[in-house]
């Protein structure tokens, strides 16, 4: 029988609850914009996040595969437009990520580490 030294509970650290799909700057930015805007167009996201079309498409694919966003393609006149909306799972994931980030900030501040 071994006795383990009592240390900080890793499962209790807020960083352990972070979702890798959401905890990525661009994807978090996409979720934040779409949440605030109700829905956002591909071009708006590309401009605001300063990304190439290909790069943004890759991130959108990851979020769509995770069921966090819905992508709708359509036309306005002759112009093709792609609209992105959050799914309920996406809203929940964004709220959870922000909660975890605030917890992390609180943890860093109370521990006194930078």
């Amino acid at each position: 029988m071994t006795t383990e030294a009592a240390g900080p509970d890793p499962a209790g650290h807020p960083a352990n609850g972070l979702d890798e799909v959401v905890h990525q700057r661009v994807r978090l930015g996409i979720l934040a914009i779409v949440h605030e805007a109700r829905r956002a167009e591909f071009g708006y996201l590309r401009t605001e996040l300063d990304l190439t079309a290909g790069n943004l498409s890759k991130h959108l694919s990851v979020l769509e595969a995770a069921g966090l966003i819905k992508v709708e393609k359509g036309y306005e006149g002759r112009r093709g437009r792609t609209w992105i909306t959050l799914t309920p799972a996406g809203s929940a994931a964004l709220a959870e990520e922000i909660k975890r980030l605030k917890l992390l900030i609180g943890k860093v501040e109370t521990s006194g580490h930078p």
Binding site: A15, N16, L18, E20, H23, Q24, R25, V26, L28, G29, A32, I33, H35, E36, A37, A40, E48, L49, D50, L51, N55, H59, I98, L101, K102, L104, I105, V108
Partner: peptide, 28 residues
């Protein structure tokens, strides 16, 4: 904006501040 995944325990303050800035920009 870079496409690198932010390591857990990185700078959550900066990440949160970026999220708020983006939301503020959308509202404007």
């Amino acid at each position: 904006m870079t496409t690198e995944s932010m390591p857990a325990g990185g700078d959550p303050r900066r990440l949160l501040s970026e999220v708020r800035d983006l939301a503020r920009g959308v509202r404007r």
